[in-house]
């Protein structure tokens, strides 16, 4: 094959995708920045960005009223709930991934399928199922009162939102950790215990460090959708718990596209910084190990 045909093939195969990627991946992101920094008449302005940091609203909790930074509070709440959900997923998922990786081949494939079935159901349906369970007149309360245990009010609280996030994104935590652990060399673990390393230390000094890449990708795969969700908070938070995704969606429905773009822009920048930091941390740990 001469160079001319090679170059022609490359151009023919690569051009459609490159053009597509520029037009529909890169340019739309530039539009987010463009809308974020312009007003209704597309004149340059910082107003949208500064509104995010300075807008205030009054919180009335019955007795006292106080002024808070509307969007900063929303952002911190999203971050808090997303971090809690990610931590819960990790605590629940890590042991499961470990158990799966140590099971027989047949059990592994059965468990894998079982974990993936809920993932294949739309997350709207999954969230909705929890709404029917957690409602004041729902199954959980029906169950509790049948046992004469009284009722609990959980729908519309932050806990309900966390439950929804954990349920929806749990598989995204288990699968990457499992796929790393399944590849771990058993001889390595045997060597560690043969050399006198007690069980728990094997976990801490051998298995955990080696599974960090899986843990990190699990964390990003849970943290990112849960920090930006809006359906879960609408259904399980009773609309009271405004998250950053709700703010973007609300501005979109109210047709305030410029402010919606500004919030999206800020979210994107923060996530990029976080991810760069995490990558750096992971690299340093790998070098240290």
């Amino acid at each position: 094959m001469n160079d001319k045909t090679r170059r022609l093939i490359q151009r023919l195969t690569l051009t459609p995708y490159s053009v597509w990627a520029v037009l529909f991946i890169v340019v739309p992101l530039l539009f987010v920045a463009y809308y974020a920094f312009t007003d209704q008449n597309f004149r340059f302005t910082f107003d949208n960005i500064s509104r995010f940091f300075t807008a205030t609203s009054v919180v009335d909790n019955g007795e006292t009223t106080r002024e808070v930074h509307t969007y900063l509070v929303i952002f911190m709440r999203s971050l808090k709930l997303a971090v809690i959900s990610t931590a819960v997923c990790l605590l629940m998922g890590y042991p499961l991934a470990y158990i799966m990786a140590r099971a027989s081949e047949r059990t592994q494939s059965v468990l894998l399928t079982l974990i993936m079935i809920p993932m294949w159901m739309n997350f709207l349906i999954r969230t909705y199922a929890w709404m029917t369970i957690l409602q004041d007149t729902g199954i959980l309360n029906g169950f509790l009162s049948a046992l004469h245990l009284g009722r609990i009010h959980i729908i519309g609280t932050e806990s309900a939102v966390v439950i929804g996030m954990v349920y929806d994104y749990f598989p995204y935590m288990v699968l990457p950790i499992y796929s790393i652990m399944a590849k771990l060399d058993v001889k390595l673990l045997e060597a560690a215990s043969d050399l006198g390393c007690p069980g728990l230390s094997v976990l801490r000094r051998v298995i955990w460090p080696l599974s960090i890449p899986g843990v990190l990708s699990g964390i990003t795969m849970v943290l990112i959708p849960s920090i930006s969700t809006f359906y879960i908070s609408q259904k399980l938070g009773n609309g009271k718990f405004f998250l950053i995704g709700d703010a973007i969606e609300g501005q979109y429905t109210a047709n305030n596209l410029h402010f919606a773009a500004a919030i999206a822009f800020i979210l994107m920048v923060i996530l990029l910084v976080c991810m760069a930091l995490m990558q750096k941390l992971a690299n340093r740990r790998l070098v240290a190990a």
């Binding site: 529909f24 991946i25 890169v26 340019v27 739309p28 992101l29 539009f31 987010v32 463009y34 809308y35 990003t220 990112i224 959708p225 920090i227 930006s228 809006f230 995704g245 973007i248 969606e249 979109y252 596209l257 919606a260 773009a261 999206a264 979210l267 994107m268 996530l271 991810m275």
Partner: peptide, 17 residues
């Protein structure tokens, strides 16, 4: 980019364009 970015940002960005 589309895999890392939250869906809501991908959706908003395309919609704006």
């Amino acid at each position: 980019i589309p895999m890392i970015n939250p869906d809501i940002i991908t959706g908003i960005s395309l919609m704006l364009m």
